[in-house]
Amino acid sequence: MKIQEVIVVEGKDDTVAIKRAVGADTIETNGSAISNETLRRIMHAQEKRGVIVFTDPDYPGRRIRAIIEEHVPHAKHAFLAKEKTIAKNGKGLGIEHASDEDIRQALEAVYTPLTAERPVEITLEDLIDARLIAHPSAKARRTELGEALNIGYTNGKQLHKRLHVFGITKQQFIDAVQALTQEDRT
Rank of each mutant, 00 (worst) to 15 (best):
M1I: 06
M1H: 03
K2S: 11
K2N: 13
E5F: 07
I7S: 02
V9P: 01
E10D: 00
K12C: 04
D14Q: 09
K19F: 04
R20T: 04
V22K: 02
V22G: 01
T26L: 00
T26Y: 00
I27N: 02
T29I: 09
T29A: 03
N30H: 12
N30G: 01
S32E: 03
S35P: 03
R41F: 03
I42E: 10
M43P: 12
M43F: 07
Q46A: 14
R49I: 09
V53I: 14
D56N: 10
D58T: 07
Y59A: 15
G61C: 03
R63Y: 10
R63D: 04
I64T: 06
I64S: 11
I64W: 02
I64H: 03
R65P: 00
E69T: 05
V72A: 01
P73N: 00
P73D: 07
K76I: 11
K84D: 10
A87L: 06
A87I: 04
A87T: 06
K88D: 09
N89P: 06
G90N: 01
G90V: 02
K91M: 12
G92M: 09
L93M: 04
H97P: 12
H97W: 06
A98C: 00
E101L: 15
I103H: 08
A106F: 08
L107R: 03
E108Q: 10
A109R: 12
T112A: 14
L114D: 04
L114V: 13
A116N: 14
R118C: 09
P119H: 09
L124K: 13
L124D: 05
L127M: 02
I128P: 00
L132Y: 02
P136I: 06
S137C: 08
S137D: 15
K139A: 15
R141S: 10
R142G: 14
E144W: 07
E147D: 08
A148F: 05
L149D: 04
I151M: 12
I151Q: 00
G152H: 12
G152I: 13
L159R: 10
L159V: 05
H160F: 05
K161Y: 14
L163G: 02
G167E: 05
G167F: 04
I168D: 00
Q172R: 14
V177Y: 01
Q178G: 05
Q178L: 13
A179N: 14
L180Y: 15
L180E: 02
L180P: 15
L180Q: 05
T181Y: 15
Q182H: 09
Q182S: 15
Q182F: 15
D184I: 04
T186S: 13
